[in-house]
Design a protein around this nucleic acid. Structure first.
Lengths: 256, 256
DNA sequence: ATTTGTTCCGTACGGCGTACGATATTTTTT
DNA sequence: AAAAAATATCGTACGCCGTACGGAACAAAT
C-alpha cells in the first residue's frame, strides 16, 4: 500500500491555466521580472490546435511546436508544465472556436442540434477524440458548452440526472459517428486505397481465408452496404438514422 | 501528387495472420528450415493480451513482451511484422475469449444483450477502446461476433442497412459507457484521489476561478449527480437509462 | 550596483519502434 | 556426408519522443 502521507491534496494546476482569461475580476498585470515572453500562451495553444487540425495529434510534438516560433523545445515549458497540460488547453481552446447557435423551440430540433454541433466540431478537430481519453476537463469553454447542452434538454420533463445522461447519450453518439469517419479516413491514408479498392484488392484472400466459415447475414448486409455506399455517403446516413432512433426514445420517455 | 505507379495493390498481410487457425482446410505443417520457434504466435498474443489487461496498452512494448519469454526484443519480429499488427491480433484474440450467450427471443432482451456483452467485454479489456482507433479489423472472432450481433437484430423488420446501423448504435453506446468508466478510473489513478476527493480539493479554486461566470443548470445538475453518485454507482445507471431510451427508439421504429 | 526571479536554450537521459547484420540452427539439395 | 539455403535469435544502433537539469541573458526590485 503506497499511501502518500498527509498531503492536503494540492489543487489542480491546470485549472488556473484553463481559466486564465476569466479568473477573478482583479486585473493585475503585475510586471514580471525576466525577459519578456516572445509569444503568448494563447498563440502557443492556437498554433498547437492548428497543427493538430492539419497533421494530427501525433504531429504536435514539443519540438515541432517550438520550432513554429523559432523557439527551443525546452522554452515551451515556461508556458506549460507538460504536454498533457497542453492537450487540455488545446481541447478547451478548440471548443471555444465553435460558436453555438441559438436553441430552437422544437424539442426534437434542440436535441438534434446538440448532436450535430458535437459532430461538426469533431469533424473539424478529430484529435479531440483522442484527447478525451486524457480527460473531459472543465475549462471555461467546455463549461459554457455543457451549460448550453443542458439548456437544450431543460424543460422537457427530465430529472436532473436524466438531463445529464441524455446529453451524454447524444454527444456520445455524435462522437461515435465522428470516430468512424476518422477511422475510415485514416485507413485510406495508411493503405493508400479507398475502401472499395481495399475490398477489391483483398477479395481473393478473404474468400480463400474464410473458406469453411459462413456468414450469411454479414455477407448480405455487407453487400447491401457496399452497394449503397457507392452512391451515398455512409456516415451521414448513419448519423441520421441513429439520431432519429435515439431522439424518438428520449421524447417517448418524456411524454410517457 | 505522390502516386505509386502500378502496384497491383498488395493484399493485406494481417489477414493471413488473423485467420491463421481457420485458413483453408488443407493442413500443411510444411516443416520450416531454421531453428524451431521457442514459443508460438498464440502464446505471444495471449501474453500481450494479459499484459494489456493488467497494466494497460502502453505497457505492451516489444521489449517488455519479449522479456516475458526470455527473448530479445527483435526476435518478436519473426512472429509479427510490427507492433500495430500485434494490436490487431490482440484485439481479435481478446474478442475470441468471450463466449457469447444464446440470443433470447424477446426483441428488447436481444438488443440489450448485444450492448451488455460489448460493455462487459470492454470492461474486461479496456485497451480495446484504444485499439479500435487503429482499426476495426475483420478477424475471425470479430466476424463471428458481428454475425451474432446481426442475428440479434434480424427479423425485426429492419432493412439490411438499418441492421448494420442499429448494431453500430448499440455497441457504440456500450463503448461510450465503458470509456467513461475507464476515464474515471484513470483519473483516480493519475491524481491519486477519488472523484469526490478531487472536487473537495479543488472546490475553493473552482469557486475563485469561476467567479463572475454562472452555470445555473450545470450547478444544479452537478449537485444532483454528486448526491446520487455517492450511494449508487454512476455508469451502471447511465447504461440502464441510455440503453432503455435507445431501444425504445429502435423498437418504435420497427413497429411504426 | 546588486540581488532576485524569469526566460531562453543546449545537452542529455531513458524509453520507444524497428532497420540491419551477424550468428546459430535446421532442412534441403547435392 | 557435405554443402547450400532458409529460418530464428539477438546485439547494436538510429531517430524519434517527453522532459530533467544547468547555465546564460535579461529585467525588475532592492
Amino acid at each position: 500500500m503506497s499511501h502518500v502521507p498527509d498531503q492536503p491534496a494540492q489543487p489542480d494546476p491546470s485549472l488556473r491555466l484553463l481559466w486564465r482569461h476569466r479568473s477573478g475580476g482583479g486585473e493585475e498585470p503585475k510586471a514580471r521580472r525576466g525577459p519578456k515572453q516572445k509569444v503568448s500562451l494563447d498563440e502557443v495553444v492556437d498554433a498547437a490546435v492548428d497543427l493538430a487540425d492539419a497533421e494530427g495529434l501525433a504531429a504536435v510534438t514539443m519540438r515541432a511546436l517550438a520550432q513554429r516560433f523559432g523557439l527551443g523545445a525546452m522554452t515551451l515549458y515556461t508556458y506549460i508544465p507538460s504536454r498533457d497540460a497542453l492537450l487540455v488547453l488545446m481541447a478547451d481552446q478548440a471548443v471555444g472556436r465553435t460558436e453555438v447557435p441559438d436553441l430552437p423551440e422544437d424539442p426534437r430540433e434542440r436535441l438534434e442540434l446538440v448532436a450535430r454541433v458535437q459532430h461538426d466540431e469533431l469533424r473539424a478537430h478529430p484529435w479531440l477524440l483522442e484527447v478525451q481519453d486524457v480527460r473531459p476537463w472543465l475549462g471555461p469553454n467546455m463549461s459554457d458548452r455543457y451549460e448550453w447542452q443542458l439548456q437544450a434538454v431543460d424543460g422537457l420533463g427530465l430529472t436532473d440526472l436524466e438531463m445529464d445522461q441524455t446529453v451524454a447519450v447524444l454527444i456520445g453518439f455524435a462522437g461515435n459517428i465522428a470516430r468512424s469517419e476518422l477511422m475510415k479516413r485514416r485507413a485510406e491514408q495508411v493503405t493508400g486505397m479507398t475502401e472499395a479498392e481495399w475490398w477489391e484488392a483483398n477479395y481473393e484472400t478473404l474468400n480463400e481465408v474464410m473458406a469453411g466459415t459462413h456468414y450469411p447475414l454479414a455477407n448480405r448486409v455487407g453487400t447491401a452496404a457496399g452497394e449503397a455506399y457507392q452512391a451515398a455517403t455512409d456516415p451521414a446516413r448513419e448519423l441520421d438514422y441513429g439520431l432519429a432512433r435515439i431522439i424518438d426514445g428520449i421524447l417517448a420517455h418524456v411524454r410517457k
